[in-house]
C-alpha cells in the first residue's frame, strides 16, 4: 500500500512537478491549492505526510497546520513546510505548531524527495 502525501501549494506548476516526482518515487499524491482547500481534503483519509507552502492566499500554511493538528486523525501527521530564508519568523510560528521539517525554496525535486524519504519511505 503506497503512502499518501498531501501537497499544498498555490503554485500549480510546483504542485505538478512535486506531484510527478513523488508519484515516480512511489507515493500517492493528493493536491490542494491553499490551506482552506487542504483542510477540506482532511476528510478522514489516511495521510502519511503533509507538504505545505507557508505563504498562500485564503489560508496560509501555518494556520492550516495548526488546524490540521487539531484533528485527531492528523494530530501526528508529519509536516514538511516549504519556506524561504526570508521567513524565519514563520519558522518560529511553524515550530510552535509542531513543524520540524523545512525545505527551503527554491529547491529541485531530489531535495524534497530526500526530505520526504527521511520521514517516510514509499
Amino acid at each position: 500500500m503506497s503512502k499518501t502525501i498531501l501537497v499544498v501549494d498555490d503554485s500549480a506548476s510546483l504542485r505538478q512537478v512535486v506531484g510527478i516526482a513523488l508519484k515516480q518515487a512511489g507515493y500517492t499524491v493528493v493536491e490542494a491549492v491553499d490551506g482552506k482547500d487542504a483542510l477540506s481534503k482532511l476528510d478522514g483519509r489516511k495521510l502519511n505526510l503533509i507538504i505545505s507552502d507557508v505563504n498562500m492566499p485564503n489560508m496560509d500554511g501555518i494556520s492550516f497546520v495548526k488546524a490540521a493538528k487539531q484533528l485527531p486523525a492528523y494530530k501526528f501527521t508529519p509536516v514538511i513546510m516549504l519556506t524561504t530564508e526570508a521567513e524565519e519568523s514563520k519558522k518560529m510560528e511553524g515550530k510552535a505548531a509542531g513543524v520540524r521539517a523545512w525545505v527551503v525554496k527554491p529547491f529541485q525535486p531530489p531535495i524534497l524527495l530526500d526530505a520526504v524519504a527521511k520521514l517516510i519511505l514509499p
Binding site: S13, L14, V18, N55, K105, P106, F107, Q108
Partner: peptide, 26 residues
C-alpha cells in the same frame, strides 16, 4: 508573493537564471 512563487517554481526546473534574478527582486 508573486516574485516568490516564480522563484520557487523556477527552482524546481533548475532555471537558475530566473531564480537568481527573482531572488534579488524579492
Amino acid at each position: 508573493r508573486a516574485a516568490h512563487t516564480i522563484k520557487g517554481s523556477a527552482g524546481l526546473f533548475g532555471l537558475d537564471s530566473i531564480v537568481a534574478f527573482t531572488h534579488t527582486s524579492e
